[in-house]
Simulated scan of single mutants.
Amino acid sequence: MLRQEHGALFSAAAEIRATTGDTLVRALADDVVRLLLRDLNALEAITTSGHRTSTS
């Protein structure tokens, strides 16, 4: 469930980044995309190492 939510937010942030002309909004969307990608990678590492949590 947590990965689904991160994926939905990742898609939204990527779309905003791709369609905005505002440099401040684009920079913020870049930060969000990087943060979510880092979190998704961490979640993936946790689930592939066999350590499952109730949030994954």
Rank of each mutant, 00 (worst) to 15 (best):
V32M: 03
A29G: 01
A12I: 13
V25W: 06
N41K: 14
H51D: 10
V32T: 04
V33P: 00
G7I: 03
L2K: 01
R34D: 10
A12K: 15
H51Y: 13
S11F: 09
R3M: 13
H51F: 10
Q4S: 06
L35F: 11
L36K: 00
V32S: 00
G7P: 02
G21D: 10
A42L: 14
L40S: 05
A14R: 14
V33S: 00
L24D: 12
T47Y: 06
S54H: 10
T23D: 12
S54W: 11
V32K: 00
L37Y: 09
E44R: 10
S54Y: 12
V33R: 01
L28E: 13
D39L: 12
H6N: 07
G21E: 12
I46N: 02
L35E: 09
S49N: 05
N41R: 10
L40D: 07
D22N: 15
R52M: 09
R17L: 08
T55H: 07
R34I: 04
D22K: 07
E44C: 02
T20S: 15
E44L: 14
L35G: 00
E44Q: 09
G21Y: 03
T48R: 07
S54I: 15
G7F: 02
A29Q: 02
I16E: 03
L36I: 10
T47D: 07
R38D: 06
S54M: 11
G50M: 10
A29T: 04
R3L: 13
T55E: 12
A42V: 14
E44W: 14
A45S: 06
Q4H: 05
R52T: 09
T19Y: 00
R52I: 12
D31F: 03
F10R: 14
G21N: 08
S49L: 08
D22Q: 08
A18I: 02
A8Y: 07
V32R: 01
L36E: 00
L43T: 05
D22G: 03
T48L: 08
S56T: 14
L43S: 02
A13H: 03
L36W: 00
T23Q: 06
R26I: 03
A8R: 15
A12Y: 08
F10I: 09
T55V: 11
G7V: 04
T20C: 04
N41M: 11
F10W: 14
V25E: 02
S49D: 09
H51A: 10
A13V: 08
A27K: 13
S11M: 15
L43C: 04
T47K: 02
D30A: 01
T55L: 15
A14S: 14
T48P: 00
A8T: 11
T19A: 13
A29P: 05
D39Q: 10
H51C: 09
R38H: 07
R38V: 09
G50D: 10
M1N: 13
R3W: 06
T55F: 10
T48F: 05
S11I: 13
R26S: 08
T19Q: 10
T19E: 12
I46M: 12
R34T: 14
H51V: 12
V33L: 03
N41G: 09
S11V: 13
I16R: 03
A14F: 08
L37T: 14
I46R: 14
T19K: 11
E44A: 11
S56P: 03
Q4V: 08
L24P: 00
A13T: 04
L36V: 06
G21M: 08
S49R: 07
R38G: 08
L37E: 12
A45Q: 13
L35A: 10
H6M: 15
